[in-house]
Write a protein that binds this DNA or RNA. Structure first.
Length: 177
DNA sequence: TTAGTGATATCC
DNA sequence: GATATCACTAAA
């Protein structure tokens, strides 16, 4: 099967549909030297709306979360713990703050390591994930068996959202560090 | 288990 | 301006 680059339309739906669908896709990133890195996504997480107490938008609209309320298909990259860039893509309708976090990819387990490997940093924040020469996501036809798990590192969320199964992982993934 | 690191939000 | 918080990782 021929590989296809995902278009904006892919992200224009609920994060709970887009997140599992992104597992098994390839992230293709081209750095300033023209070097291309592609990694297969093995884990994603959905963050959905102001009512999701684990979502950054749960405290309402701020300068930082503004992007989450915007159009689907744009990147939300932010620095966590002063050293790790975490990469998300905005999904759903405009005005509905939701996103999918890229948690792990083939060989590289962990959202901080994922962005480091790809060379994704703060300069990608707000950039589109469609029609973008720097980064895109491709579908090469691989269809993994998907496992659902609770999200990681969100103990501050209320129990119903802390325990919800909004992490999606490729059951055949190899965990490596 | 803990240190390291820095942006953000919230309080003064 | 100050401080508490945080969707993490590596080292021990």
């Amino acid at each position: 099967m021929k590989s296809k680059v995902l278009t904006r339309k892919f992200f224009c739906r609920d994060c709970l549909e887009a997140a599992p669908d992104l597992v098994g896709k390839l992230i293709v990133c081209t750095d300033s030297d023209g070097v291309r890195t592609s990694l297969r996504i093995t884990e994603t997480e959905a963050y959905r709306g102001e009512e999701d107490t684990a979502c950054h938008a749960s405290k309402g609209r701020t300068k930082r979360t503004e992007i989450l309320y915007g159009k689907a298909g744009y990147l939300y990259v932010y620095l966590c713990y002063g050293m790790h860039h975490l990469m998300n893509v905005v999904t759903g309708a405009e005005g509905m703050p939701q996103a999918v976090l890229f948690r792990a990819c083939e060989v590289y387990d962990g959202p901080g390591k994922l962005t480091k490997k790809l060379g994704v940093d703060g300069s990608f924040n707000g950039q589109p994930l469609f029609g973008n020469p720097r980064i895109c996501i491709m579908d090469d036809g691989y269809r993994p068996d998907i496992e659902t798990l609770p999200r990681v590192g969100i103990n501050y969320a209320t129990p119903e959202y802390r325990d919800i199964l909004w992490r999606f992982a490729d059951r055949s993934r190899k965990e490596r560090r």
